[in-house]
Amino acid sequence: MIKFGISILLAERPDWRKQKIALVTNNAATTENDIPSHLALIKAGFNIVKLFSPEHGFNTKGADGEKMPDGFDVATKLPIISLYSEKLKPNATDLADVDLVLFDIPDIGARFYTYLWTLTYLIEACKEYNKPLIILDRPNPIGLDLAQIEGPMLDELNCSSFIGRWDIPLRHSCTLGELALYFNDIKNINASVTVIKCEQLSRSDFFPNWGINFTPTSPAINSFNAAILYPGLGMLEATNLTEGRGTNLSFQMVAAPWLMHASEIQKQLEDVLHIEAITTIPKEAKFAGEICNGLYISPKNYNEFDAVKTGLLLIKLIKDSHPLHFKWQPYLTNANPDGTKHLDKLLGIANSEDLFELPLSDFESTINNLCTVSAFQEKVKPYLLYE
Rank of each mutant, 00 (worst) to 15 (best):
D306K: 15
A307G: 11
A307L: 09
V308S: 08
V308W: 02
K309C: 04
L313N: 06
L313Y: 03
L314F: 12
I315S: 00
I315V: 13
K316Y: 15
K316M: 03
K316F: 11
K316P: 07
L317M: 09
L317V: 02
L317F: 11
K319C: 04
D320L: 06
S321C: 12
H322Q: 10
H322W: 07
P323I: 11
H325A: 07
Q329L: 11
P330Q: 03
Y331N: 12
Y331I: 08
L332A: 10
T333S: 14
T333G: 05
N336L: 15
N336T: 08
N336H: 09
P337T: 06
G339C: 06
T340G: 01
K341A: 09
L343D: 07
D344F: 04
L346T: 13
L347I: 08
L347D: 00
I349K: 04
I349N: 03
A350L: 10
A350V: 06
E353Q: 14
D354E: 13
D354H: 06
L355D: 05
L355P: 05
F356A: 07
L358T: 01
P359S: 05
P359D: 12
L360T: 15
L360W: 02
L360M: 13
D362L: 09
F363I: 04
E364N: 11
E364Y: 09
E364P: 05
S365G: 03
N368L: 11
L370S: 04
L370N: 04
A375E: 14
F376N: 09
Q377G: 08
V380F: 11
